[in-house]
Write a protein that binds this DNA or RNA. Structure first.
Lengths: 347, 347
DNA sequence: TTGAAAGCGCTACCAC
DNA sequence: GTGGTAGCGCTTTCAA
């Protein structure tokens, strides 16, 4: 319908085809320029009231909707902020953050667009993103390298912001250091007198971005404090009951007196399996999760957890806006992940 | 940087500005047409190997990335499939579905884009979506009316698909009838001999899309079967422990012998509160949730639930593709939500 | 107050 | 094989 070239009937608005501003102009009996002035409320030029009305009426009658691509092609820029759509199921924490962010950017008159996963890694994906000529790009996780940043900037992105573990050359960075989560958990367990600490690492792919740093945080805290004889053991665990039961079955053999379980969901899964296997919690083994999800409060004993503070969407939106306004400014790098232990009954 | 009109130096590729195909052509010493042919592997025209190489090298050297807007403006169509980004935190079920769908559409060479919430309701939002001239639009939930569908189609969308409770004039419909969930739950509870059924309805806004039909499904099943003396009571509940405790405190006064709790999360919250208040489950009160989440298996007694079958992403992607290829075909309407009770220990 | 026209970056038709 | 060029829909000077 759309892509079939219209036959050369320049004076007619073929019914069934998408109306353009020229069609509106024709119907209103004015020029395309006037249509543009009226529809955009251009202040630099005054159009008579009757003309305005005619244009508006014509536009409504035709169901005219401006063509964003044509507009931004002409303007040379857009107000699109692009983020890759999350590929892994993302928890309520991050969902909320995303939602806030979209709202805040919307209020600053940006259009947020989540680009559906191409499955490729950051630097290749950057090319696809760059084709849309977004004014800013927000990239969670790692994966985008300096190459990707360069591609984006060369194609007109005025701001590239990464949300992840490390800074990337040329991009603003909201550093989310998940080792802090592991460190907090480990410090808590050590303070409770535990020294043989298991760390659950999800077997599911895609979660390494978070699980590796959390594990390293534990290692760092335990070995950094010169804990004599304290040990850390990595425990792969798939998110299903069978695997949890298997792990629980060999628990006593592991000789652990504490476990930090990646997040509350894995913690609950494991804790349930341990209890079913007759392991006393926190007597035999202390358990701590992370993310402070509601579900941690529902099982007994109540699950200790590491509460995570994310930046407010509004803050990030303002950072983006600032960066867009002044693309020459040096990249900001800000530490935004707060980790606080919420001690409950399981540790 | 981008929007500042370049001074009239037509023969120079100003450094720092975004490279265009003309810049590539200049550097390679060929015409823009040739660049286009080479970069798009146009089969209708044969370009000599040396020329191809020169073009590719020039493109790489400049970091050339084609301008999607210009391309689709010229082409008269795009392969963008647009969906509104979810505004409410969406569970693992739907996340997975979305992810599959994106993958499947990607494999069919569509680009999926989630449009950040404009906060407006469907029909107004439709205008904003239409500005992007997507080839197809996927709209979950209700909210989009025939008006919105018309706007989208008039602006070139070849397929509009709704995923929701009802069909919308002019759009394909994947009917997700959540009353089926309520009906399944109610039938189960009735079969277990329960007759005074509470139905938890989340106090959180935005969930009505699901909670109302689920409630109505229960009502329908209970009254439809001519259950003499069976009653259904609506129980608003906020997703926090205090509100759950309050509800539990007045539980005996309500005289209910069963409760269907919207979904597993609310069910677990309430079940925990009821147990803490000394209500025996399932003895005094049977509890059933929905969505078959992992967490329902962790608390004891294990939570009965209604398992929900969503269509596969691949199926939906194929529907979209078919609709795009043949926009004139009559709208498909398909029932896609399967609801099966998974009886466990709580009912 | 309004209109004519240039041009954003790209592709595809038609000449050479 | 390659180049010239029209034109997608829009905004915005510059003239009238």
């Amino acid at each position: 319908m759309v892509q079939i070239p219209k036959p050369p009937t320049p004076a007619s608005a073929a019914v069934g085809s998408v109306p353009t501003s020229a069609d509106v102009a024709r119907l209103a009996g004015v020029s395309r320029a006037t249509v543009s002035y009226v529809l955009n409320n251009t202040s630099a030029v005054r159009i008579s009231e009757p003309t305005r009305r005619r244009v508006h009426e014509a536009a409504k009658e035709l169901g005219y909707v401006p063509h964003a691509a044509a507009r931004s092609l002409r303007a040379g820029h857009s107000r699109m902020v692009l983020m890759p759509a999350p590929t892994i199921p993302v928890g309520p924490l991050y969902s909320q953050f995303l939602s806030d962010l979209q709202g805040a950017l919307g209020r600053l008159d940006y259009t947020v667009v989540q680009y559906g996963a191409v499955g490729t890694h950051g630097d290749e994906a950057a090319r696809a993103w760059a084709e849309l000529r977004p004014v800013a790009v927000l990239v969670p996780g790692s994966g985008l390298g300096p190459q990707g940043v360069a591609v984006l900037k060369r194609s007109g992105a005025r701001a590239v912001v990464t949300l992840g573990p490390e800074t990337v050359e040329g991009a603003h960075a909201l550093l989310m250091d998940h080792t802090a989560v592991g460190r907090a958990a480990a410090a808590h367990l050590r303070a409770r007198g535990r020294s043989r600490i298991g760390v659950v690492v999800p077997a599911e792919p895609g979660l390494e971005v978070f699980s590796r740093p959390r594990l390293h945080g534990v290692r760092h805290a335990v070995h950094g404090t010169g804990g004599t004889g304290a040990t850390v053991i990595e425990l792969p665990l798939a998110y299903d009951e069978d695997d949890a039961a298997r792990l629980a079955a060999r628990w006593r053999g592991l000789g652990l007196d504490a476990v930090f379980a990646y997040n509350d969901e894995y913690a609950m899964l494991l804790m349930r399996a341990l209890m079913d296997a007759g392991v006393d919690i926190p007597g035999d083994t202390a358990v701590i999760g992370a993310d402070d999800l509601m579900l941690g409060r529902l099982l007994r004993p109540r699950l200790s957890t590491v509460h995570i503070d994310l930046p407010s969407g509004r803050d990030l939106a303002e950072l983006v806006d600032r960066a867009v306004r002044d693309p020459a400014a040096p990249p900001e790098r800000r530490e935004v992940l707060g980790a606080t232990v919420v001690p409950r009954e399981s540790s």
